[in-house]
């Protein structure tokens, strides 16, 4: 098991969420026990409908659990949201089309009442971080999909929350752009020591990025396996050909198969 962290960020126990739909109840999450420590990079992987998004949305106070408990930095999700404890990156970039890139990044800062000068400084810093300097005045439609997604990451980083929730942020991008963004994300994580929860469908992506990989399975959505990564924190892209990497990937694949998730 995970060694006890002195600094737990997310603590879920017996967490469950059942949606009441017209076709009857859907158990999106059932008995999820998970503890995530400060500075961890945790990936969630599993077949469609296993509750990955739902789990992230519970953390973000976008859904209410129907059983069990969850705390973020010792607070309830609502308190954590009100304290702006996390930045959320959705699968779609969700930039406001009527705002330039810099104004999109400024959006959360405006809402949080941060002064104009401070906003300017932070916009510059975060756009540098995601390699978008020079695109401040462009509108979203003038940027490629990958650049838009980086802008949305910059927006989530701008208010400097310690927790980053990312729901398949690179799902819609091609492999080359994705590799590049993975590398940048790892670098960013290394520089900032943020805690990151990352949803993905890709085994290599999960293994490359994570310190821990949570394997989930559907009907009901639950955690079936938690795999610790033995890879070092410094990870060049070609680490993905190393035997160690392949071994972890194989374990994840086995975990997914054991949840016999892809049978039906």
């Amino acid at each position: 098991m995970q060694p006890a962290h002195s600094n737990t960020v997310i603590e879920a126990s017996k967490l469950g969420l059942t949606f009441q739909t017209s076709d009857g109840p859907v158990r999106a999450l059932s008995d999820v026990d998970l503890s995530i420590g400060k500075g961890e990079f945790v990936s969630f992987i599993g077949p469609s409908g296993c509750g990955k998004t739902t789990f992230l949305r519970v953390i973000a106070d976008l859904e209410r659990p129907t059983s069990g408990s969850i705390s973020i930095n010792g607070m309830s999700p609502q308190q954590a949201r009100e304290a702006r404890a996390y930045g959320y990156v959705f699968q779609a970039a969700a930039l406001f089309p009527w705002r330039t890139i810099e104004n999109n990044v400024a959006l959360p800062l405006e809402i949080m009442g941060i002064s104009r000068d401070e906003r300017k400084a932070r916009i510059k810093r975060t756009l540098d971080l995601v390699n978008l300097s020079g695109f401040e005045k462009k509108y979203p439609w003038q940027l490629s999909g990958g650049m838009q997604q980086r802008a949305s990451i910059a927006r989530a980083l701008a208010f400097d929350a310690d927790l980053l929730l990312m729901d398949e942020p690179f799902g819609a991008l091609d492999e080359i752009v994705r590799d590049h963004l993975n590398e940048q994300l790892l670098k960013l994580w290394g520089q900032t020591n943020k805690t990151i929860c990352f949803v993905t469908h890709s085994i290599p992506e999960a293994v490359y990025l994570s310190t821990r990989i949570v394997v989930m399975s559907p009907r009901p959505g639950r955690v079936t396996d938690v795999i610790e990564s033995t890879l070092p924190r410094e990870r060049p892209l070609d680490i993905r050909e190393s035997p160690e990497f392949l071994a972890i990937a194989a374990r994840v694949r086995d975990g997914l198969r054991a949840g016999h998730s892809y049978d039906d």
């Binding site: 959320y88 969700a94 959006l107």
Partner: peptide, 21 residues
């Protein structure tokens, strides 16, 4: 909904959501 969720994660007030979105 996506945009409304985004504003929700920022804990934006109703008037902020109104004017900015």
């Amino acid at each position: 909904i996506l945009y409304l969720d985004l504003m929700h994660t920022y804990n934006a007030s109703a008037s902020q959501t109104f004017w900015k979105l």
